[in-house]
Design a protein around this nucleic acid. Sequence first.
DNA 1: AGCACTGAAAGTCAAAGAAAGTCAAAAAGT
DNA 2: ACTTTTTGACTTTCTTTGACTTTCAGTGCT
Lengths: 153, 153
Amino acid sequence: MNRSISDVIEQFIMSSLDDNDFIELSRNDLAKFFSCVPSQINYVLNTRFTINRGFVIESQRGGSGYIKLTRMHDNDSNFLKNSLECCAKPMTVLEANQLIQNMLDKKLINEREANLLKCIISAKALNNPINIDNTIRSNIMRQVIIELSKNDK
Amino acid sequence: MNRSISDVIEQFIMSSLDDNDFIELSRNDLAKFFSCVPSQINYVLNTRFTINRGFVIESQRGGSGYIKLTRMHDNDSNFLKNSLECCAKPMTVLEANQLIQNMLDKKLINEREANLLKCIISAKALNNPINIDNTIRSNIMRQVIIELSKNDK
DNA sequence: AGCACTGAAAGTCAAAGAAAGTCAAAAAGT
DNA sequence: ACTTTTTGACTTTCTTTGACTTTCAGTGCT
């Protein structure tokens, strides 16, 4: 197996995640360590540690910036993955409400949270040109799912 | 997580506020203590201890000058009412985040809820024509506040 | 008492620095 | 040929630094 540097970096990051549910990386340091350009790290992250594979990435730029990588819990991850597909297209209020109800049923959120979400994706909250309304709604739900995927507190 | 010197200073000031409702700082002494330039203290104050997060800063220059930092206390309904006014105008991500942080500080929402809200009002979630972006954001926050007011004690 | 001087604060603002992100071209695999 | 990987120039975001400004209390002089 003639593996690429990307594979090696993937492996390295993967094993760092063995012990912890999340790790914090320095893009520049990692790049230096593997003698590659920094954007290669982004490439690895974007191609290997995707939401669909159960990972969530957060980061901050600027002085003492960082990249935080979180692994999702497996049981929830499937449901969330499927839900994500739901959010690939614009959603009506009805569809969004159903998704929220599903999340509630699966105990991924509680009642209070469900109510919050419902009011947020309501027509009132997204009061603006109708044609992009549903798009924003699915964008919001996608972000919610990503947020719920982070299993740290 | 204390990533930057600014974060460390923020923490320090924050914990000084644990016991008292207000504290008096000496900009120069603080700067000396943390081995940074005095204006760094201003930076921390301006980015972390903002009005939107419920802090008030008073200061005096010149001989025996000082910086007085006060944490605002007002009851929940007052707070919600004021927050509503905040949402009368379009809001930037930063403004919304500070409002959410403030709600968290006041225990009107918990950390999980705060994170949910933050991701919802993020640029990513509201990914659409910039000029109406901020308007949607304030609409959303308004609905959230209204929702939170429902189960008010 | 009133006034000017002085030095000790704090404030401002913009440049420099330090990350991370983006995107597309070039290179390498298959 | 086509897909994946590698590279690097350019962008964006946040932090750190420092030169310069403003304000004030105290002091000494008239």
